[in-house]
């Protein structure tokens, strides 16, 4: 090749694709455009999340505003049923709240709890998993045994005990004010080992790679190597596990609320809505339980489907032979 060719090449490479361009060329985007399930799940998730977070604007009534609720409106079936009313699209619950508005607010509560609990899990899990994988030795053994102990109590058991004790000792009044915070804390703390173990495993694999040795030869400190070099390379499993964990956290919250240990009736989440309708299901008011139930199932299902897709895309070798 001549000199002119070399210069030509140099001129070509000066065009550098931007972030968006690079994203559109990536495998990630390509796989997404090819996968119908992922697209549909993504659209549904965005719609549900969008509607939930815009609930103060979208909802026809404010279910938290006790003044606007009329007990005379209670147990009206959905609008398409015989006794349904135009005013209440999905009917009302036993207290006369518009079910559609309550579901929107409830979905928001569920999503916030799920998301924040997972953030807390991630924070604890990443810190513990990263340092225990990186330092190894006694610290690693100790933390992993702690994780084993934590895992040997089921999340629900821990949550029920903590929440029940809290409710009994501080009274229902204070509890209903702090319910959301307590749920986030309990679900967040109970599930950190899931993260810690996953991250520790990928740290152990990454730690052996030569770029980590190169960083050590440069004289970098442990913190810098852990957070700037190893952690960014462990992001894929964190992303995958996060989707599953958000779904799990939403289910845990719903289950706790169903048992009466979660969100109070005055600020219902999806779980407490299902629970509150459960008493009326045999008197024919099925909609109070079934409709929030369907919303919950769909929400968890699309998150799980997205998580599965993400896992396949980020880890093609492991799952596609």
């Amino acid at each position: 090749m001549s000199q002119a060719d070399t210069i030509g090449q140099a001129a070509q490479v000066t065009h550098v694709p931007g972030r968006w361009e690079r994203f559109k060329k990536s495998n990630f985007w390509y796989n997404f455009t090819k996968d119908k399930v992922a697209q549909i799940s993504f659209v549904i998730l965005i719609l549900m999340a969008g509607a939930a977070f815009l609930s103060p604007v979208l909802a026809p009534t404010n279910p938290y505003d006790l003044v606007s609720i009329d007990i005379m409106d209670s147990e009206i079936p959905p609008s398409w049923a015989e006794e349904g009313e135009e005013r209440f699209l999905l009917g009302t619950d036993n207290q006369g709240r518009d079910l559609f508005s309550t579901i929107l607010y409830g979905t928001r509560t569920s999503l916030i709890i799920g998301f924040c609990a997972v953030m807390l899990q991630m924070f604890l899990g990443v810190c513990i998993g990263l340092s225990s994988g990186y330092f190894g030795g006694r610290f690693d053994s100790f933390m992993m045994r702690m994780a084993d102990i934590q895992l040997s109590f089921s999340t629900m058991m821990v949550a029920i005990i903590v929440l029940a004790v809290f409710q009994a000792s501080f009274g229902a009044e204070l509890y209903s004010e702090l319910a959301m915070l307590m749920l986030i804390l309990v679900i967040g703390i109970a599930e950190w080992p899931q993260y810690a173990r996953t991250i520790r495993a990928s740290v152990l694999a990454e730690k052996k790679k030569e770029y980590v040795e190169a960083a050590r030869v440069m004289g970098f400190g442990s913190g810098r190597i852990m957070f700037r070099h190893i952690l960014p390379n462990c992001l894929s499993p964190i992303l995958v596990i996060s989707t599953v964990q958000i779904a799990n956290a939403i289910i845990s919250e719903a289950a706790l609320s169903f048992l009466g240990l979660g969100m109070p009736v005055s600020k219902p989440s999806l779980g407490s809505l299902i629970s509150s309708g459960f008493e009326y299901i045999f008197s024919g008011s099925w909609w109070i339980t079934v409709i929030p139930g369907i919303v919950l199932v769909v929400l968890v299902l699309v998150i799980n489907l997205l998580g599965d897709w993400l896992r396949d895309v980020l880890n093609p070798k492991l799952y596609k032979g």
């Binding site: 790679k209 030569e210 770029y211 040795e213 190169a214 960083a215 030869v217 440069m218 004289g219 070099h229 960014p232 390379n233 992001l235």
Partner: peptide, 24 residues
């Protein structure tokens, strides 16, 4: 104590595919 000396001793590794941080 070693840190100033780390600058003076540097290393080139065998495997070009794992010796660079893929996220930088």
């Amino acid at each position: 104590e070693r840190r100033p000396l780390n600058r003076q001793i540097q290393m080139i590794f065998q495997n070009p595919y794992s010796s660079l941080n893929a996220r930088m």
